[in-house]
């Protein structure tokens, strides 16, 4: 029996061009790194590195611009969609996207994301939902589950005091502005592949001038969930998935056409 070995000069796997040679500083088992890699792959595949702009938010991914090998900038906590709006309106040829955590997008930045969606801005938002404030050390986020421990809900989140978790995709998909709204996850390879498809479609929607696209990615934070990295994936499946069902929440017909196109290709 002979083994089918690939030619030595066949590259099977490489670091995306859109990623800088710069180590991630995330904790072991953090989901942010996976999502960054997916974004970079998509930007490579769409060949938009020269036009892409990462609008970083405030959270563990505050220095997003260090990891990507294209233009990037900081925005004040919660304001990334407003910053991206201005970039797109002033330079329509650019492809700005925001990368925002759940605290950033769904608490302090609720107004900005709602209105960017309502205006149907032609920008893309990648929304990493880890159900916690990672960077500040594990306080309750707007997406923290009922009963879930955080440093500011010491006995677990109780609705009588701290209200209920926000389902961002469900909420934003009621608006007329967005072209594409989807929720994905990165808890296993199959989920990661689907996540990449959604991210790619979101960028393609922007490239086709179809309006606001938003992909929510359920992402583990082992550090603040206080579980080991592998267990964090299980925890995500067991607890986050029931509260935050995966799927496409809004696909306007033009985006559906894009999808069909890619299936045909």
């Amino acid at each position: 029996m002979t083994l089918d070995t690939p030619e030595l000069d066949t590259v099977l796997y490489h670091k995306p061009e859109a990623l800088e040679d710069y180590p991630f500083h995330f904790c072991p088992g953090c989901g942010h790194g996976i999502v960054f890699r997916l974004i970079a792959e998509v930007i490579d595949e769409l060949k938009i590195k020269e036009r892409a702009v990462c609008v970083a938010s405030i959270g563990c991914t505050v220095t997003s611009y260090h990891y990507f090998n294209f233009d990037g900038l900081e925005s004040a906590h919660g304001r990334a969609p407003a910053v991206a709006t201005a970039i797109k309106r002033c330079r329509p040829n650019l492809v700005p996207f925001t990368y925002q955590g759940d605290g950033d997008l769904a608490a302090i930045g609720t107004a900005e994301i709602v209105h960017a969606c309502a205006r149907g801005e032609n920008i893309t938002t990648i929304f990493a939902n880890n159900a916690i404030y990672g960077m500040t050390g594990g306080q309750m986020a707007p997406t923290t589950l009922l009963g879930m421990y955080s440093t500011s809900t010491p006995g677990g989140r109780q609705p009588s005091r701290a209200g209920y978790p926000i389902r961002v995709c469900e909420m934003l998909s009621t608006l007329d502005g967005p072209a594409y709204v989807a929720r994905v996850s990165v808890h296993n390879p199959a989920a990661v592949r689907k996540a990449k498809q959604a991210i790619k479609l979101a960028f393609r929607a922007q490239l086709a001038n179809l309006g606001m696209s938003l992909v929510e990615v359920l992402s583990p934070c082992p550090t603040n969930w206080r579980v080991e990295p592998v267990k964090a994936m299980d925890w995500l499946v067991e607890h986050l998935l029931p509260q935050y069902p995966l799927g496409e929440y809004k696909v306007i017909p033009a985006v559906a056409d894009l999808k069909k196109e890619s299936r045909r290709a």
Partner: peptide, 19 residues
Amino acid sequence: GYPITPQNELLEHMAKRMP
């Protein structure tokens, strides 16, 4: 309050003590 370092301990302490 809203979380921000380096005052988080204050908010976290209030989360426990005020109730």
